[in-house]
Amino acid sequence: MPKCLVCYKWTLDEQDIKIKPEDLSLDSSRAKGKISDFDRNAIEEAALIVEKNGGAVDALSYGTAAVKQSLKDALSRGPEKVYWVADTSAETADAAVTANVLAATIRKIGQYDLILCGEGSSDLFNQQTAPRIAALLGLPCLTFVQKLTIEGDMIRATRKLDDCTEIVSVKGPAVISVLSEINKPRIPSLKQVLGAAKKPNEEIKLADLGLKPEELQPKAVRRSVKGFVMQRKNVIYKESSAADNVAKLKSNLAAEGLC
């Protein structure tokens, strides 16, 4: 009957972010919020574990005031309760600050057998949160998990790594990060969506976490963000004769010294 906690991030949908042609800066004014894709897998995995083994799932998120928009969304996907920390520090928080806040919150809200995260967030994809939280809490960490089974207090995971798959086991509690292929998050049914309004949410104030000022200072500060734009020749042949197109391409390749 594992007690699970899923940490998720409320991100901007990267598909809505546009590059301003004048200065290549990013325009996210029209971007809608969403629960980070891989975190959805983590939430779904926790829901599946609890369906199979009993227990309960809580969710936790640290973000700006916008995180309040995520609560019902998260609750409609399986968790019974969602904890949230909303603070302007989240705007510039790096992975170090995020992990400090999440770890401090977890220390405050209770004991969990399983702490799950997505492999990385869909916007920044730092892939750091799970190992950082584990290090801060002194817990073992299993990353890049594509299959997870719980047997009593034993956690067994299949990890997918660059050149191998590895089956590992550890006695809980542990921190786990999951890959997107671990499951397919269900589309919340409408009853689940409407039921979310009846589930509890609890705000944890940053000031109550007892963090020192330097723990809230980002150690990696983003200095500039520019849209990546491909500068290519864009010489495209569209004649009706494929042979003509091929002949032209061949002479280009020859000129470039490639054939």
Partner: peptide
């Protein structure tokens, strides 16, 4: 409302998927 948005989102996801 949030509910209406989430319901719309579920319908959109259902539409995209199925």
């Amino acid at each position: 409302t949030e509910e209406q948005q989430l319901i719309g989102q579920s319908a959109r996801e259902f539409g995209k998927e199925y």
